[in-house]
Simulated assay, not measured.
Amino acid sequence: MFSKFIKKKKEKALKGGNAKVQKSMKDYSKEDFFVKKVETAKEVLGKWGLPKDLPANK
């Protein structure tokens, strides 16, 4: 019974987000640290891919 409650809560969390983008915040997407992390992530995903049991976001 508790596991059904947790499952429903996780499903709700995955359906959508309430994120708000603030235009006044600094954009960190071009910082060296984050650029290196993205490159590393692309290499790993290219080599190993995503897990098959990962739920698809639609």
Rank of each mutant, 00 (worst) to 15 (best):
S3L: 09
G46H: 02
K52V: 12
P51E: 13
K10A: 08
K8G: 14
K42P: 02
G17P: 04
L50W: 08
K8Q: 14
F5N: 11
F34V: 09
P51C: 08
K9F: 14
K23S: 05
F5E: 11
D27P: 00
E43H: 11
K52R: 11
M25V: 14
V44D: 02
F33E: 14
L50K: 07
E39D: 08
K8F: 10
F34G: 06
V35W: 05
G46W: 02
L54Y: 07
K26D: 00
G17L: 00
K58M: 01
K37I: 03
A56G: 04
E43F: 08
K47F: 09
G49F: 08
A19R: 06
F33A: 10
K37T: 04
A19H: 07
Q22S: 09
F34K: 07
K23T: 00
S29Q: 14
A19P: 04
A19T: 07
V44A: 05
Q22H: 08
K9Q: 15
F5Y: 14
V35R: 02
K30T: 10
D32F: 09
V21H: 06
K9M: 14
V44W: 02
K10D: 06
A56Q: 09
K52L: 11
K4A: 02
P55A: 04
D27C: 04
E11K: 15
A56H: 01
L45S: 03
L54S: 05
V35Y: 03
E31V: 09
D53Q: 06
L45T: 01
A41Q: 03
K20G: 01
A19V: 12
G16E: 12
K8N: 15
A41N: 04
K12Q: 10
P55Q: 03
K47P: 03
K4D: 01
G46K: 09
S3G: 03
P55M: 06
M25W: 12
I6S: 11
K47C: 08
L45D: 03
N18Y: 08
K26T: 00
P55H: 05
S3Y: 07
F34I: 09
K58A: 00
K42N: 13
F5S: 10
G17M: 01
N57W: 01
S24A: 14
E39P: 00
D27M: 07
E11C: 10
